[in-house]
Design a binder for these strands. Structure first.
Length: 299
DNA sequence: AGATCTACCTGGTTGC
DNA sequence: TGCAACCAGGTAGATC
């Protein structure tokens, strides 16, 4: 499921492929894919706004992938309230669990799970597919992007924080450490995989409260999280479920998981069978020996 | 402030 | 074999 490293990998691939490309037309194959609240465009406005637009930038914030569109010079119609020819627009995709964004050659037919597509002027097609219909796209003017509550509330990027700032973010909080890692308003981009993997590497029990952990170990967690995210990006992400990059290729980091999805398997460090519990409503895998609770000693 | 539950979905796996 | 039950995941929203 796409978390920060997977979305980053997709963004890099799309950036290479799409920057400067012009959109001929969009299509909504399943209208429910488009979220139109908080100032985002509805279906008809979306279709008008993307037609003729140029893709200027591809970026990522947390798990959100954004395409910046501009210069709807060739658009036959402008969206209501939008000036033709100068209509900057953000397309924000959230892939949730099974969403895919891929660039396909001209003539490729949409699959049964393709929910939205952009036909490019050069014939290629950008497909947004999602078997489970959890993924969403929003089309927003720049002001609307800032007013999107989820986006506006996103916490800092974990790879842009130094260790003391990371520790300060969590220090003293009484929620469980894993719940905080997963909370997008605390830290943007971490999901179940990288929360479990980083807590294992840092030797921290996922159900410890942040307040019980202490600054030195929080800084160690920062190092573990940054390392695991960087390694995963270098491996082009983790392919479980449906994840592929913009070119349809799988990632490789799933082969390096130390705990995620390995319950009952021997710990790679101490060979103790990995345990499973639930934290913040999520399946959580950890090593009962390497990740002792803070109250059990071992500062 | 934080935890817990439900809803949203459906492909894949497990159990009978 | 065939089918039902369950599970996975991120976020929103309600409730305690």
């Amino acid at each position: 499921m796409p978390e920060l490293p997977e979305v980053e990998t997709i963004a890099r691939g799309l950036r290479e492929d799409l920057c400067g490309a012009r959109v001929a037309a969009g299509a909504l194959l399943w209208p429910g894919v488009l979220e139109a609240d908080h100032g985002a465009l509805d279906g008809p406005a979306f279709l008008r706004a993307v037609a003729g637009a140029r893709i200027d930038a591809v970026w990522r914030r947390g798990k959100v992938l954004l395409l910046d569109l501009a210069g709807t010079g060739g658009a036959p119609h402008a969206a209501p309230g939008v000036t033709p020819g100068a209509a900057p627009l953000h397309l924000a995709f959230h892939l949730r669990m099974t969403g895919r964004l891929t660039v396909e050659p001209g003539g490729t037919a949409p699959g049964v799970h393709t929910r939205l597509l952009l036909d490019l002027a050069d014939g290629r097609r950008l497909f947004f597919a999602d078997a489970r219909k959890f993924g969403r796209c929003r089309a927003m003017a720049p002001e609307a992007l800032g007013r999107w509550p989820f986006f506006a509330a996103l916490g800092p990027e974990p790879l842009e924080l130094d260790a003391p700032a990371f520790a300060a973010l969590l220090a003293g909080r009484r929620a469980r450490i894993k719940a905080l890692l997963l909370d997008q308003s605390v830290l943007a981009g971490v999901g179940n995989i990288y929360a479990d993997e980083s807590l294992f590497r840092a030797g921290i029990h996922p159900a410890d409260t942040a307040a019980a952990i202490g600054p030195a170990r929080l800084e160690r967690l920062h190092g573990a999280l940054a390392a695991v995210l960087r390694e995963a990006i270098a491996a082009n992400g983790s392919s479980i479920s449906d994840y592929v990059n913009a070119h349809g290729d799988a990632g490789a980091f799933q082969n390096d998981f130390r705990v995620y999805g390995r319950r009952g398997c021997p710990c790679r460090v101490c060979a103790t069978p990995l345990a499973r519990t639930t934290v913040a409503g999520r399946t959580t895998t950890f090593c009962p020996l390497c990740q002792r609770p803070a109250w059990a000693g071992d500062s």
